[in-house]
Design a protein around this nucleic acid. Sequence first.
DNA 1: TGCTGCATATCGTAC
DNA 2: GTACGATGTGCAGCA
Lengths: 274, 274
Amino acid sequence: MVWVIQRPSALSTAEACDDDSGRGGRRCLLGRLGTRRSLLSFGTVGLVRLIVARCQVDYAGRLTAHLPLATRLILAKADGSVSIHADDRAYKPLNWMNPPCALTVSTAAEDSGFTEVWEIRNRDGDTLLISIAEVLHDSSHELGVDPGLVKDGVEAHLQVLLAEHPETFGAGWTLVQREYFTAIGPVDLLFRDESGGYVAVEVKRRGEIDGVEQLTRYLTLMNADPLLSPVRGVFAAQLIKPQAKTLASTRDITCVTVDYDVLRGLDDPADRLF
Amino acid sequence: MVWVIQRPSALSTAEACDDDSGRGGRRCLLGRLGTRRSLLSFGTVGLVRLIVARCQVDYAGRLTAHLPLATRLILAKADGSVSIHADDRAYKPLNWMNPPCALTVSTAAEDSGFTEVWEIRNRDGDTLLISIAEVLHDSSHELGVDPGLVKDGVEAHLQVLLAEHPETFGAGWTLVQREYFTAIGPVDLLFRDESGGYVAVEVKRRGEIDGVEQLTRYLTLMNADPLLSPVRGVFAAQLIKPQAKTLASTRDITCVTVDYDVLRGLDDPADRLF
DNA sequence: TGCTGCATATCGTAC
DNA sequence: GTACGATGTGCAGCA
């Protein structure tokens, strides 16, 4: 018997039931392996399924990867995605399949030592095969829609602050445009310096060699434009790696280390001490 | 009362106990929030703790980030790492703290609406604050040491195959050296072409603009060496992006699209059909 | 849909 | 420890 499950947009919330021991315990939304309910709990909007199982995993896609039989944590989320975790590393799963993807569950061959095989497949034909030998825990939980993450201090914010404070680079500087468009992409900031010359500024949180390359491409293009040329380059970042500094100096690009907290302080008069 | 817990290398396996309902149910390794045992389950070798809770999260480190109060999944692993998940996305947690890090648990202020606050801190002083309003599920599980991942088909393999098959690039080509060392790093492959001229080859799985920049830096350096100059450049990848092709052509770099399966077939006589 | 560029990128490795 | 490149990078924004 084979079930094919995709995210069922029309499916309503799953019913509440007891845990897999079947003998009381906490109430949560879940189901047993191999039942129709267990399959529906995959890909159902609002449910996260937590499984601890002895399993073997095989991935075939951009590379092939194999996880020998061992006890691992399997996360099956409401969007249909699946990840397999060991007991270390916060960020990266051992194996995973990103949404959108579809799950197929089939019973394993009798003498294989496995009870079920789950095949997760994405649109590119990448497959994740989870062969389950023994389930040690299985529960599902309703989380609801997450209100989302509020961030502050990323490159975009740094760029805005620098646009508002040209004096960071020098007295008499004026902003021409933020995200100044060129044929090969937008330059983060375009200024005129105290003598009226154009300066292209590339903003990074961390200044590395790639950023210098990027700015160099922009400068080459802009200096080919008689209306702009000559254009100087400034590489601005909170921290600039030595290799990036060296490369920049060979290309007459000025490096400017910017202090995010100071900029934010300038931005908010209430934070000023003088 | 505040407990500070770090990975206790000398600590033996935790004791088994019933789940947090205290009234039977499955046996697993876990503990209640706010007790000494629950704290020990963090950072204890071999245990993964799964918590579903209404919580609010604040991260302060390389940036600041805030998660409003909502129900989420908290994973606390044996290495002390912690991650917070919503019900979507296989790969990336909403928030996380990588090991090595230390956890401090304190009881929340009475009128705050929270029961406990967990502060996870790493060596750089980055902090992850989890304010817990209500625990809906809490269980811990012993996974044991994972035997690890076996991979095949990455760039290194592609490079080996190309080194073994210079005819991929042209008749009469011979390999000079794999990982040919230069002052700014190793060139993937160095060949002599049919007329004896040197050719530097940069190998990528996916050919993008950065790879062309990388090869350009190598070529500039090698062409400054009278013993090597002139050195041509070839950019070899399974797939080359249009922008990378365009940039390569402006620098007289030849693009070669290679077929991994064909190369592997050449490598294994058993797979040949003729 | 495809392409570009950022990321609390993470992670391995060479120096 | 730092620097650098690879990653099944993931992910968002935009044309």
